[in-house]
Design a binder for these strands. Sequence first.
DNA 1: ACTATAAGTGAGTAATCACTCATTTATTTG
DNA 2: CAAATAAATGAGTGATTACTCACTTATAGT
Lengths: 223, 223
Amino acid sequence: MDHQEIFDQAIQGMLDSLKNEQEMTEKQRRILESAIKLFAEKGFHASSTSEIAKDAGVAEGTIFRHFKTKKDLLYALVAPMLIKFASPLVLKDVKRIMGDAEQPADQILEQLLHNRLELINQNWPRMKIIMQEAQFHPEIMDAIVENIAREARLLGENFVQTRMDAGEFRDLPVKAVIRAIVSTALGYIFFQHMFPNEENDRTEEIRTMVDILLNGIKRKNPD
Amino acid sequence: MDHQEIFDQAIQGMLDSLKNEQEMTEKQRRILESAIKLFAEKGFHASSTSEIAKDAGVAEGTIFRHFKTKKDLLYALVAPMLIKFASPLVLKDVKRIMGDAEQPADQILEQLLHNRLELINQNWPRMKIIMQEAQFHPEIMDAIVENIAREARLLGENFVQTRMDAGEFRDLPVKAVIRAIVSTALGYIFFQHMFPNEENDRTEEIRTMVDILLNGIKRKNPD
DNA sequence: ACTATAAGTGAGTAATCACTCATTTATTTG
DNA sequence: CAAATAAATGAGTGATTACTCACTTATAGT
């Protein structure tokens, strides 16, 4: 049984036992929330189940009534995020934004960045946990790469190739273009959390980032 | 005593007790190497001292003869990297590269990216540990932000502002330009470790990245 | 109201954790 | 070579870990 199967099984177990987080018990939801909070703050291994139980106002045994192991608790809070990112619904969102061949690239990229950054920001603690733990849990990393990264990359390649064929984009390696787009989003998140106290107008920032992405930082007609 | 002091003290303790890693005992060096390997592979909290001792072929007590606590062991492998990045010597390197007003920006940026990416790649396990643990150890994060990020940013601001004044760069928010440069490097590292099995010619990749950074992905003269 | 099922509890468990220390081995020095 | 110092050891420490289970409490179906 490889990583993918292990994680698929973990996800399947989640989906079987509960349709969504709405129909959890009050205490079960509190456990999940405390786990998210503590895992994000201190990391998975540095957070103990007794700590989580205390924070959730719950007996430690209650955790293991709902989640077989501590790792299952991790899966339970990671899986919904991955599903959210990989779900056809969300990808359809992306497809709708990127598929419109009429719309100029700058508007599409602005929408895309705004859309994805919003999703990430709204679920930041979970995102932080995923980015942290994916490095140490190959099943999670595989799930990301297989279900999300690869799909997103195909979508992106299609978008970039179309624009390049239409002569809107320069003739560059597609991979490098996609990397530039993703790097823009990644760097924005990084700076935001590296220097958190600096105020910024997100819409304006995104406009500038897309401007740089499309037109570069160099002046075009030096006079 | 705030974080900065705690970390400074940790660094000072290191520098006092040993000039560099050359004049450690054989076993002490093996302990450090095993710690680097295991921390990078499994994370700081997920690696036990007994595990490290076993991997280093050393009694567990030997670890604590050389490093007072497990956290001191972490500091001992993190500190040299931070010093390496923050040292005047290295920053002088950067200053030399960026200070040459005659050289065209593309060459400077290519040199800079090549230089920094090489440094990061050569010390990847340590870098991974730092990025991982900085989030959970405020002393480390502070040391990075105060001693490196801020300095690098000032250097970058100077470089960008100069080029903008000379009319070589467009009139853009300096912060956004710096973010674009850093994002380029960051994204490259990210992709490299997200899709590790794809071969690439680093020099060529860097040239393309700088091209995109300077000129954007959009065609300039659509015909 | 009775019963079956699920939710919740908290004391208990073996394993592992970071760390100590009395002792042994190796190296340096006078 | 002998004495002094440093390096290395591994059994042992109390604390903490993830997890179990016999038990109580709450909910729901008939």
